[in-house]
Design a binder for these strands. Structure first.
Lengths: 348, 348
DNA sequence: CTGTTAGCGCTTTCAG
DNA sequence: CTGAAAGCGCTAACAG
């Protein structure tokens, strides 16, 4: 009773295996009555086709690999939800692997997925991934790949994310519009493509408003682990506050960085936005309820996941006939709240 | 160059397929030099064993199925991280499926996973899952199953979660200790096992302190979708506030319910804890930074995931020889903050 | 309309 | 020490 196979049901019904197979797949070359008998027996005995066998035979696994930095991240899990929703609908299931911001791990994930026979890969590269040779090699193998979230201009492929330059530009410009001129940036290494793009957006906004770019105001967080990152953020913020002329506002260029900045500022007894205004990339639904309500650059996470998955499925099923690669940049939304309220405005 | 098989390498090295297979698995019956040649060629040509074939042959897939309500939930994703960490270490990979709180979906997930040949299943049942026949049937098939998070006393199996009764008891008792007597409960239907347990804990605490149980104070949220849930929470809270004698404190018995309650109370212009104290089940790292800082019943999510996965792997590998089922109930931690600060105490 | 056959890539007896 | 052969469960020609 363990697992029922086509042969079992063929034997029971005194048919051949292939007849049963075809009957189950509703082939035109099988008689109605036979189909019914087979279907009835299968249902009654809870027959489940063995997908490993089917996959092996057909050379298709019906699954899609997804590589992300960490599943324990609200922004990421929102994207995963989007990915899952379109994949499930299309009949694919997904195998999720975490690179934990390590290039070595990322390669291991990719190998696993390839060995598993996934039909395509959705990947948001690790923070250590500064070149894309391993992905290029995989792509040359014929594996459909779509980059999402952490997109890169160095790598030719389909990509879905946001316009990082523009998002960072808008956030910085918003601070400027609200009267801040000494604006710090907390971000990741410029080796990380999306971080470099956000850095540019920040710099461009300053430039456009004739505000000098001060290297001391641009802080690069290298740490990745949960605790290490927390400590690093705190150290950077303390360093900013200790500057002879400290900044009046901070733009945190990452989801994690934003919430950790808020925490660190609290811990250091810093008034927001009185002592330091704050805006960050963040998708937390709790932004409204934070102290103070946190201004955020909101990314359409679910939609990014959906679109990336749709694109990948087009590639897999060969619906995509276009010769060129395409990068979809979804618009961000600026959710302005108290943490970046205009300078010198009376507190409500 | 697409995918290299054992046959390809056998042909290239003028060996037989079985020799190559054995060489790669370092069999004692293969000569050292042959092994080296094979290994070298395999590495040089980026040979990856086809896991579908291996799985089919061995009847083992090397994968574990995980069913959760929704991946887009910080508590869940934390547990998933725990699961993934132990599974990856043990060489299993995981296939995650969402039931979206629907029993029908849950069954579909289970079928999928079974067909995929997973070697065991970790499941946190949907809110609609009030009986466990489908799980029992699957278990009788020989499929190792471990319930996590949403554990049930109706279903005999290995389970890992928290002591819901005790957690709810402690939370309620804390409110009582802080001077609140009119305490409302916002929870899910008692048909949901863990919700029933929390309800009991709440009731027991009241009873032990000779506080009457008022049905009007116990609100059951039926909705599940993101928006529907939000609306439902708001409606319930409004109803509570509109009572002739409204409650002074609220205990929200779920992660989602807690944050939505906070949001709703804000929206309705209610002071916390002045007009209504609040404590909730929640794992958000942002609790400290909410307005006001939110008192929470903190569950060791990562550890729940880890333990459940460890147990499952023991079952799969047959290390578990104990005849009886076991339910591990991890202790919760009460993180007390301002939202449930003592009644009549001066605001800081 | 139904059955026979071959084979997906791999592991595993069983012979050489 | 190496190879030939069978078979995991399924599908897809190709025959009947």
């Amino acid at each position: 009773m363990a697992t029922m196979t086509l042969r079992d049901i063929a034997k029971a019904l005194d048919l051949s295996v292939s007849t049963v197979s075809k009957a189950l797949r509703d082939s035109y070359e099988i008689g109605e009555d036979t189909k019914k008998r087979v279907a009835a027996y299968a249902r009654a005995n809870h027959y489940l086709p063995n997908r490993m066998a089917k996959s092996l035979k057909e050379g298709k696994s019906g699954s899609i690999g997804v590589v992300i930095c960490s599943i324990d991240n609200s922004f990421v899990s929102r994207m995963l939800d989007g990915i899952d929703s379109t994949c499930t609908q299309a009949g694919y299931d997904i195998i999720i692997m975490q690179n934990k911001e390590s290039l070595a791990q990322e390669k291991a994930c990719l190998n696993q997925l390839e060995a598993r026979g996934v039909e395509g890969i959705l990947i948001s590269p690790s923070a250590e991934t500064v070149n894309f040779e391993h992905l290029a090699a995989l792509k040359d193998t014929g594996m459909p790949i779509v980059l999402f979230d952490r997109i890169s201009e160095q790598f030719e492929s389909y990509q879905v994310g946001i316009d990082n330059r523009r998002g960072a530009f808008q956030a910085t410009q918003h601070l400027i519009a609200n009267g801040y001129r000494r604006i710090a940036l907390l971000t990741l290494s410029p080796d990380v493509p999306f971080a470099a793009q956000r850095r540019e957006g920040y710099a461009n906004a300053l430039k456009q408003h004739h505000i000098p770019y001060r290297p001391a105001f641009v802080r690069t967080v290298q740490a990745h682990g949960r605790e290490a990152l927390k400590d690093s953020v705190r150290a950077h913020i303390r360093a900013l506050l200790d500057l002879p002329e400290p900044p009046e506002a901070l733009f945190a260029a990452t989801d994690q960085l934003s919430t950790q900045s808020l925490a660190a500022l609290h811990q250091l007894g810093c008034q927001i936005p009185g002592d330091m205004a704050l805006i960050g990339f963040s998708n937390t639904e709790l932004a409204d309820m934070l102290t103070p309500p946190l201004s955020t650059v909101y990314q359409p996470a679910f939609q990014i996941g959906q679109l990336a998955a749709e694109k990948l499925i087009e590639l897999i099923t060969g619906k995509d006939r276009s010769p060129d690669y395409e990068t979809v940049r979804l618009p961000i939304r600026l959710d302005l709240r108290d943490s970046s309220r205009p300078r010198f405005q009376a507190t409500v």
